[in-house]
Amino acid sequence: MSLSLDYASLDHSKWRNLPPPLGFASLSSSKTPSKSAAAATESYEALKEKRAWDFAIAPAKSLPMQGFMLYMSGGGVQIFSMGIVAMLLLTPFKNLAAINPAFAQFAPGSTTSSKASSLTTLALPKLVYLACNVATLALGLWKCRAMGLLPTGTGDWLAFESRGPAPEMSLF
C-alpha cells in the first residue's frame, strides 16, 4: 500500500468550467506587447552579466578581510594561522578548477547549453576572476614567506648538499 497521495486521480472536471470570480483578469486572455518581452530578456541578460562581474571580483573583495585575519593570526606556526594559510593557498586552485561551471549560470542565452560552460564564454570576467584568485594565492604565499615556510634561502637546501672526498690526503 502506497502512502503517497494520488492527486492525479481526482476528478476536477466539475470545477473546470466555473466562471472566473469578479474582477479577475485572465493573463492568457490579455494581450502582451512583444516589445516589452524583448526588453525584459535584455535586462535579464544585463543582470546576468553584472552578476558575472560581481562574481569575478568577489575574491578580491575578501582580500582586505583575509589580510586582516592574517595579521591577527600572527607570525607563529600555529593551527589557526596554518588553517588560514591553507585556505588561502587551496581556494584559488579549487576556484579555478571550477571556473567554467561557476560562470555557466551567468552565460548569455541558455544556461544549460554546452556553449555556456565553454572556456571562451565570459572570457573577460574569467580573466579578472583568475587575476583575483592569483592575488589571493599571492597573499597566501606572502604569508608563508613571512612565516618562513618558503624554501627560499640556501639554508633550506643545505641538507641536500653533499661533498665528495678531497683530492689530496693528509696524515697526522
Partner: peptide
C-alpha cells in the same frame, strides 16, 4: 653532519672544513 650554519636570515655560513688543516 651539517656542512654549514644556517643563520637567522636563512642564508648559510658554510663551515670551512679543509681536511688538511691542523
Amino acid at each position: 653532519a651539517s656542512l654549514g650554519k644556517v643563520i637567522g636570515s636563512r642564508a648559510t655560513l658554510y663551515k670551512y672544513l679543509n681536511p688538511h688543516m691542523f
